[in-house]
Measured scan of single mutants.
Amino acid sequence: MDVFMKGLSKAKEGVVAAAEKTKQGVAEAAGKTKEGVLYVGSKTKEGVVHGVATVAEKTKEQVTNVGGAVVTGVTAVAQKTVEGAGSIAAATGFVKKDQLGKNEEGAPQEGILEDMPVDPDNEAYEMPSEEGYQDYEPEA
């Protein structure tokens, strides 16, 4: 019985440690998101679009440190934060509304985080759909 109880105690310690790591990862992701939003706020009209992409990228980098179902929630929060940063930029006159959601080359930025393969159960990952990809044929 002692062996059984000791095993359960060790398992509990492992769960607590994993929860603490997840909590730490979420806190880091939130900190990076805040950094990115402050970065966007300090940019001029020309830099705002690039700044919004930076927020998304920093958040995406930190999301990889967070495991399990938390990833889905962090990704949703990050996307809403990026959308909010863009709205703030438009409201303050840093950028025109028609410039939001495009990178410096004018290509749409939507789907940055949505296409990231995420499995809350950590069982399997699927690649994003290939609808947006084109076949590449090298020139002879």
Rank of each mutant, 00 (worst) to 15 (best):
V15S: 00
D98A: 04
V52K: 02
V63K: 01
K60G: 03
A124N: 10
A124R: 13
S87M: 03
V15A: 07
L38T: 14
E28F: 05
V66L: 13
L8K: 00
Q99E: 11
V63E: 01
K43T: 08
A140F: 01
E83D: 09
D98E: 12
K10R: 05
F4W: 10
S87Y: 06
K10S: 09
Q79D: 12
A76H: 14
V82W: 12
V40K: 01
V66P: 03
D121N: 04
A18W: 13
A17Y: 04
L100W: 02
Q24E: 04
M1H: 00
F4Y: 11
A85H: 11
K43R: 07
G101L: 14
E130V: 13
V40C: 08
E61V: 07
E104G: 14
V82A: 07
P117W: 15
T22I: 04
G106H: 04
Y125C: 05
E110N: 12
V26T: 01
K43L: 10
E137P: 05
K12S: 12
E130G: 14
S129T: 13
T54Y: 03
V3P: 00
E61Q: 09
G86F: 10
I112V: 15
T81H: 12
I112C: 06
M5T: 01
G84W: 03
A89I: 13
K34M: 09
A85W: 11
K23H: 13
T22L: 04
Q79L: 15
A78Q: 06
G51I: 02
N103Y: 06
E105H: 01
K34A: 14
V40S: 00
P138I: 09
M116Q: 03
A19C: 12
V77Y: 06
K60Q: 13
A76T: 15
A140S: 10
M5Y: 01
P108R: 13
Y39P: 00
K45N: 05
G51M: 10
I112P: 07
T59P: 01
N122T: 10
T22G: 12
A85S: 12
T44L: 11
A124F: 11
S87H: 13
V26K: 00
F4G: 00
Q79V: 10
V71S: 05
Y136G: 04
V70N: 02
E110P: 10
D115N: 08
T22W: 11
V82G: 06
V63M: 08
K12V: 15
A19P: 00
A29T: 08
Q62M: 04
E130C: 14
M5A: 07
A85Q: 02
G68L: 04
L8D: 00
A140H: 11
V63P: 02
K97E: 08
T59F: 14
S42F: 06
P138N: 07
P108Q: 09
A29Q: 04
V70E: 03
K21N: 05
E57T: 09
Y136C: 05
K58G: 00
E131V: 12
V40Q: 01
D2F: 12
K21P: 00
G47W: 15
P108I: 09
L100Q: 03
T72L: 06
G86S: 12
E131G: 08
T59Q: 01
A76S: 04
P117M: 12
N65G: 11
V118R: 14
K23T: 05
V55Y: 04
G7N: 05
E130K: 14
K10E: 02
G67T: 11
T22K: 00
E35P: 01
T81F: 12
V55M: 12
E57H: 04
V95R: 15
I88K: 03
M1W: 00
K21E: 00
Q99N: 13
K102N: 14
V52I: 12
V16M: 15
V15K: 00
E126A: 07
A27D: 03
N65C: 07
A53S: 15
V82Y: 10
Q134W: 02
Y136T: 03
A91V: 10
V48W: 09
L8M: 14
V40E: 00
H50Q: 15
D115P: 03
V15Y: 06
N122R: 13
E114K: 12
G31D: 09
K60N: 06
M116Y: 13
D98C: 05
N103T: 04
L38S: 09
E61G: 09
V77F: 05
V71L: 05
V71I: 03
P108H: 06
K97L: 05
Y136S: 11
V95A: 09
P108W: 07
A69N: 06
E131A: 09
E28H: 08
Q99Y: 12
E139A: 11
Y133P: 14
K43H: 04
D115L: 02
Y39S: 07
V15I: 08
N65A: 10
Q109E: 14
E137G: 09
K102G: 04
M127W: 04
T75R: 05
H50S: 13
G73C: 13
S42C: 11
S42K: 12
G111Q: 13
T64D: 11
G106W: 08
V15Q: 00
E139C: 01
Q99G: 15
F94W: 15
L38I: 02
K45A: 01
G14H: 13
A76Q: 01
E46M: 12
E13T: 08
Q62Y: 06
A78C: 14
E114R: 14
A107Y: 14
A53D: 13
E13F: 10
K80V: 12
Q62P: 05
V48P: 00
K34P: 00
G73H: 08
D135K: 06
A30Y: 10
V70Q: 02
V52S: 04
V118P: 07
A69E: 06
L113K: 13
T72S: 05
M116V: 01
T92W: 08
T75F: 15
Q62K: 04
P128Y: 03
V77H: 02
Y136E: 02
T44Q: 01
A107C: 05
N103M: 13
V66I: 08
V82L: 11
I88V: 03
G25P: 00
Y125W: 14
V71Y: 15
T64V: 11
G73Q: 14
S9N: 10
I88A: 03
G14Y: 09
A140E: 02
V71P: 06
K60M: 02
Y39H: 05
K45L: 15
H50K: 09
G111Y: 11
I88T: 04
Y125S: 14
K58R: 04
K12E: 00
V48F: 14
K12G: 03
V15G: 00
K12I: 02
M5H: 00
I112Q: 05
G101Y: 03
P117E: 02
E20F: 09
A78G: 08
